[in-house]
Design a protein around this nucleic acid. Sequence first.
DNA 1: ATTTGCAGAGTGAATACTCACTAACTTATT
DNA 2: AATAAGTTAGTGAGTATTCACTCTGCAAAT
Lengths: 195, 195
Amino acid sequence: MVDTTSKRQQEIIESAGKLLMEKGIKGLTTKNLAHEMNFSESALYRHFKNKEDIVLLLISFLSDNINSRFNTILNSEINAEEKYLALFKSQFQFFKTNPHFIVIVLSDGLMDNSEDIKNSIKKLIETNFGALKRIMIEGQESNLFNQEMEADSLVHFAMGSFRLQMLQWKISNFSFDIETQGLKTMTNLLTLLKK
Amino acid sequence: MVDTTSKRQQEIIESAGKLLMEKGIKGLTTKNLAHEMNFSESALYRHFKNKEDIVLLLISFLSDNINSRFNTILNSEINAEEKYLALFKSQFQFFKTNPHFIVIVLSDGLMDNSEDIKNSIKKLIETNFGALKRIMIEGQESNLFNQEMEADSLVHFAMGSFRLQMLQWKISNFSFDIETQGLKTMTNLLTLLKK
DNA sequence: ATTTGCAGAGTGAATACTCACTAACTTATT
DNA sequence: AATAAGTTAGTGAGTATTCACTCTGCAAAT
């Protein structure tokens, strides 16, 4: 049996995301989720085996989305500097439209729930790291980026800055324009990354 | 009544920290905490009004510790570059000895609990930001650090890199030496920060 | 004599999840 | 075309468990 995702499942994970954003991890309860869907708690279990599976599907959606956007950028015919900017612009635009996914990327607490969820998030972070690393290596090889240190370090600075930017946006209750502010930050970092 | 901290209270917040590190936020329950202390749950309430107060005291301990270490460094007679390194070395050494405090700094989930806890953590982050900013400005004024962008940006890169380093350490279950690895990362960043 | 530090047995609220059952719709058989 | 069988998506009332927290009582220290 092919494990496809139904329309109803999509609606549920959208509601789950909304709850995560509005009320945090503690707000993502079966009761709240059912209420958000305008049906009973038990109806939830017609569509998912358990709550863990709901979160896992949410993560896999985010993961697929990021991977497809990153691959497009990585395979395009632009230089490393442009790829770097395109990648973060794409990220900021996506999270601007889908802010609820932030919790997944940032939240430590989600990881405490189950080993499977923890591994999914770890894998997502590693994939992101890998994509960025390809760009950094390309930049170093084409003499655009700093070559004094390993590409891993450059990736680390970029990812760290990106994550902190997202955290500040969330803490501020999404009060500033993440696309403008985020790109400004990442552009500033770029001038440091360039040799 | 003066709100002094008893020896027993100290023991309790130490146990609370241990639980946070070993089992995450979800592991910090009154039951677990009482068990860790080898007494009953109700005994907890002889020493604290409620659970929130335990977490708040934990945060204030971390806050005091960081502030005192940072002030010593900020007031010492060394240049900005040395202050930068001293600050992060001090941080890595502290968290190496007291890894349970990581959860407080990193965890988003803790902030969902109560408004007071959220504000304490926000304040802690802001204080750290401020201390780092003083160093960055000093470095810019003495022509050591990059002057093309605001000090805030430099602080952002440093804090972001630091936090990501701590997150990776935690995700790896504290499997590498954070002092060595952390200092290596922050030193690499320093070469980029220097103009 | 009062306070301190604890135990033990409880509380209500919340949690994820299960159960038996039903109404509506689709498909297959006659 | 009419009936029978099966599927899907829902309800409402429950489950056991966990949560932070309280009440009463008791022994030891002050």
